[in-house]
Design a protein around this nucleic acid. Structure first.
Length: 493
RNA sequence: CGGGAUGUAGUUCAGUCCGGUUAGAAUGCCUGGUUUGGGACCAGGAGGUCGUUGGUUCGAAUCCAGCCAUCCCGACCA
C-alpha cells in the first residue's frame, strides 16, 4: 500500500526503477549517473562476488589491485582500445583546489595546479596492467600470469540506468598473459564458461554463449565471447564478456618473453569481466509486480522467519524462541535465515515487505501452528503457501530452497526458449521484433554493412554467433547472400 | 548530446497558469492506548533553506535566466 510498484505491462522501465528503489537495492545520488548501492544491494553483490571469486581461484587466478588512474600516454598506446573508449573517459587535469577570491567560502580549481600529463580515470585497465606486465615478464617461466581485480571503473555514459548503465560501476576484470595463442584462447573460453555456469547455476539465469561479430567486439580484441540473457520484455542483456586479445596489447606495450628456444616473442593476452549490471539482469529476468524474486543461492536472506505475536506473553515468548531455534539450526546448515520479531509491525506488512525484497522463502510461526506442530511456508517464486509439520523442518527448507532455485531457472529458460524464433524473411523479422519481442535466429551474410543496415532498420543487433552453432545452408535475411549458419539477433540493453 | 517532462515535509503529490497573511493533504515518522493469520485503528505531536544561484518586484514556491539532479523518447554505448 505504501509502496506502489508500477506494473510490468504498464511501464517496464518504471517497474524496473520502482523495484530497485523500493526493494532497497540502490538509490540515486547527488552525482550525475552514479548510484548508491544500499546494504541490501551490496550484500547481494557480495554474495555474487564471493561465488565468482571462488571460481576464479579454483581456475588458478589470484587477485591484485591496479591504480584508478591511467596516464593518458599509456591509455592511448593501444590505439583501437583507446579510440573505443575515448568518448566516455573522465579525465583528471588538476590536482588542487583553492579558495575563490571572488566568492568567499567557495573553492575553485587552482589553475597553477595543472597536471603535466592528464590522468584518465580507468574505463577498463588493460593499459595500466600491460604497462605493469612488461616489468613482470621476461621469460616463458614468468608465464602464465593469471590476475583478477575487483574494482570500480568509470564510463561517462550519456544516458544512465540503475545497475544497467551507470557512470561508475563495480566489476571484476581478469587480465591474463600467456606464452601461446592456444593457451590464451583456452583461457578465454574457460572464463566464458565460468560466467555461464555462474549465471545459470547461481543466478538461475539461462544464457546463450557465443562470439561477438566484429562490430560488437571489444575494442582492441581479436575475439569477444559473450553470454547473452533474455529479459522479460524480450530484450537481450549482455551479461559477461571474455576477450581474446591476441598480441595487440603486448605489441602496444612491448611485452615480450624469451621462449624455450631462446627466441623473443610477444605475449598472448585475455581479459574478461562481469559487473554490477548482473544485478539488473537478475531483476529483469525474475521479478514480478510484487517485487524482486531472488534465487536462493545468492539471496542476502534465503529464509525469513516471522513469528506471530500473541496477547499471551507466554505464547509469544515460545513462538519467538521456536523461531530463533529454527534460525540457528538453519544457520548451522549454512542457510542464511533471519527472524523478524519486530513487534511494531504487523505480519501482513512484513509479508509484503519481504516479498518486495524477494526473499525466497517465508516461514510463519503462529499460535495455531505452534499448537499443531506446524508452520506455514510461503515460497516467493510461485507464491504458494503450505502448512507443513515442524518435523525435519530444516531439511525440508533446504530442499525447498533447491527446488526454488531450479524452478526459477526452468521458468526463465522456458520463457526464453519460447521467445526464440527462427526467421527466414526480413518482413517477418521486422514484424516479430515489434509484435513478439525476443531473440531471432536468422541467416546473415557476415558483413558489417549488412549488420549495420539491419540495426538501422530494426534496432536489432547481432547479440552473438552461438557456440556449437548448427551449420546449415541459408540465405542472408537482408541481402539473400549465402550463409552457413544462423546468428542471434535481438534488441538489447 | 538533442527533444519532452519534473524538482514543494522521509515518500507521493496539491498549490505555480493569474505573485500578496502563518505553504497544505495523504502516507510515513514520534508519543500513548487498543490491536495483530495478508500492508491495523483512535488520540496527540514533530517535521519544509519550496533543487540551487542570481534577476525582476514594495513583496517570489509562483515571473525570468543560468546551473544541478531525476525520469521518458532519441542519438550514442565493448
Amino acid at each position: 500500500m505504501s509502496k506502489e510498484i508500477t506494473g510490468r505491462t504498464e511501464n517496464y522501465s518504471e517497474w524496473y526503477n520502482d523495484l530497485v528503489l523500493k526493494s532497497g537495492l540502490a538509490d540515486y545520488s547527488a552525482v550525475r549517473g552514479c548510484m548508491v548501492i544500499k546494504p541490501y544491494g551490496f550484500t547481494l553483490w557480495e554474495n555474487m562476488r564471493d561465488v565468482l571469486d571462488k571460481k576464479f581461484k579454483e581456475t588458478g587466478h589470484v587477485n591484485a589491485y591496479f591504480p584508478l588512474f591511467v596516464p593518458k600516454s599509456l591509455f592511448e598506446a593501444e590505439e583501437k582500445n583507446a579510440e573505443g573508449f575515448a568518448k566516455e573517459c573522465a579525465v583528471v587535469t588538476h590536482y588542487r583546489l583553492k579558495n575563490n577570491p571572488d566568492e568567499p567560502g567557495k573553492l575553485m580549481v587552482d589553475p597553477e595546479a595543472k597536471l603535466e600529463e592528464e590522468l584518465v580515470v580507468r574505463p577498463t585497465s588493460e593499459a595500466i596492467i600491460w604497462n605493469t606486465y612488461k616489468k613482470w615478464i621476461q621469460s616463458y617461466r614468468d608465464l602464465p600470469i593469471l590476475v583478477n581485480q575487483w574494482a570500480n571503473v568509470v564510463r561517462w555514459e550519456m544516458r544512465t540506468r540503475l545497475f544497467l548503465r551507470t557512470a561508475e560501476f563495480l566489476w571484476q576484470e581478469g587480465h591474463t598473459a600467456h606464452a601461446t595463442k592456444q593457451e590464451a584462447i583456452e583461457e578465454t573460453i574457460q572464463m566464458i564458461n565460468v560466467y555461464a555456469d555462474f549465471a545459470e547455476n547461481y543466478m538461475a539465469l539461462p544464457v546463450i554463449k557465443g562470439v561477438k561479430s566484429e562490430s560488437e567486439r571489444f575494442a582492441g580484441a581479436e575475439n569477444t565471447y559473450t553470454i547473452e540473457a533474455m529479459m522479460q520484455d524480450g530484450k537481450a542483456l549482455q551479461s559477461g564478456t571474455s576477450h581474446f586479445l591476441g598480441q595487440n596489447f603486448a605489441k602496444a606495450f612491448d611485452v615480450t618473453f624469451k621462449n624455450k628456444e631462446n627466441e623473443e616473442e610477444y605475449v598472448w593476452a585475455t581479459s574478461w569481466g562481469v559487473s554490477t549490471r548482473l544485478i539488473g539482469a537478475l531483476i529483469m529476468a525474475h521479478a514480478d509486480d510484487d517485487g524482486l524474486i531472488l534465487p536462493p543461492r545468492i539471496a542476502p536472506h534465503q529464509v525469513v522467519i516471522i513469528p506471530f505475536l500473541s496477547k499471551n506473553e507466554e505464547e509469544t515468548k515460545k513462538m519467538i524462541e521456536t523461531s530463533i531455534n529454527l534460525k540457528n539450526e538453519l544457520n548451522k546448515m549454512g542457510i542464511r535465515a533471519m527472524v523478524d520479531s519486530d513487534e511494531t509491525k504487523r505480519p501482513g506488512f512484513k509479508f509484503a515487505e519481504y516479498e518486495l525484497k524477494g526473499v525466497p522463502l517465508r516461514v510463519v510461526i503462529g499460535p495455531r501452528d505452534l499448537a499443531n506442530g506446524n508452520v506455514e511456508i510461503a515460497r516467493r517464486d510461485t507464491k504458494e503457501k503450505s502448512t507443513i509439520s515442524i518435523e525435519n523442518l530444516p531439511e525440508k527448507i533446504e530442499q525447498l530452497l533447491e527446488n526454488i532455485q531450479q524452478n526459477m531457472f526452468d521458468k526463465a529458460k522456458t520463457f526464453r526458449d519460447s521467445n526464440i524464433t527462427k526467421v527466414d524473411d526480413f518482413e517477418t523479422f521486422q514484424k516479430l521484433l515489434d509484435e513478439k519481442p525476443g531473440f531471432i535466429l536468422a541467416h546473415w551474410d557476415g558483413t558489417a554493412e549488412t549488420e549495420e543496415k539491419i540495426k538501422e532498420l530494426t534496432k536489432a543487433t547481432i547479440r552473438c554467433i552461438p557456440l556449437d552453432n548448427p551449420q546449415e545452408e541459408g540465405k542472408c535475411i537482408l541481402t539473400g547472400k549465402p550463409s552457413k549458419e544462423r546468428v542471434l539477433f535481438a534488441r538489447a540493453y
